[in-house]
């Protein structure tokens, strides 16, 4: 194996985060999650496992939900990133955030930003007609049944286990299944 380069190469990238263009010089090893949290002071995306096994770091990149922990920031040069802070702030809650509050869809709150970003991604994926493992007929249009919402939210672990309440909150925003 070749010797790795000494030190850590620095790269310059530009991200559009929550609608604002941000230039960053960073260690090439920096994950998107750490870039958001440690460099851009956007601490809403959480680090629960750092290995794509919990979903607490979920953000939307170019409209799609991903695990920010399993991405290098440099891979996203030029991308549009939406974090929980871009979805809504305390004095201006988005409907999903309002619904999570109304339904008590969280307890400790640590997985919550990821759950909400994931729910936002879910709603968009359903509009696109994307199927899930809960979709019976893969050729039929997608209907967001409760089983669909549960399956599609399964990349977000909530150890407080607010799952029933999270389903209710997403249902409030998604509207009835039929």
């Amino acid at each position: 194996m070749a010797t790795p380069p000494a030190g850590a190469p620095s790269v310059s990238i530009r991200l559009t985060v929550n609608g604002t263009s941000r230039a960053l010089d960073l260690d090439v090893r920096t994950t998107l999650l750490d870039a958001l949290r440690e460099r851009l002071n956007l601490k809403g995306a959480k680090k629960g496992c750092d290995h794509g096994q919990c979903g607490a770091c979920t953000v939307l990149v170019n409209g799609l939900r991903i695990n920010a922990c399993l991405s290098l920031a440099v891979m996203h040069d030029g991308d549009e990133v939406t974090t929980i802070e871009g979805i809504g702030l305390p004095d201006n809650l988005a409907p999903l955030q309002r619904a999570f509050l109304d339904r008590d869809a969280f307890q400790c709150g640590y997985c919550t930003p990821g759950q909400i970003c994931s729910a936002a991604g879910l709603l968009d994926e359903a509009v696109r007609g994307w199927p899930s493992a809960a979709t019976g007929d893969l050729t039929a249009p997608v209907t967001l049944t409760d089983a669909e919402i549960r399956e599609r939210m399964s990349g977000n672990i909530c150890r407080c286990s607010a799952y029933p309440q999270i389903l209710d909150a997403i249902r409030d925003v998604a509207g009835p299944a039929s």
């Binding site: 799609l64 991903i66 695990n67 879910l122 899930s132 399964s154």
Partner: peptide
């Protein structure tokens, strides 16, 4: 396989 987030990536 995986999760929606992983499958998106």
């Amino acid at each position: 396989s995986g999760s929606p987030q992983l499958r998106n990536k």
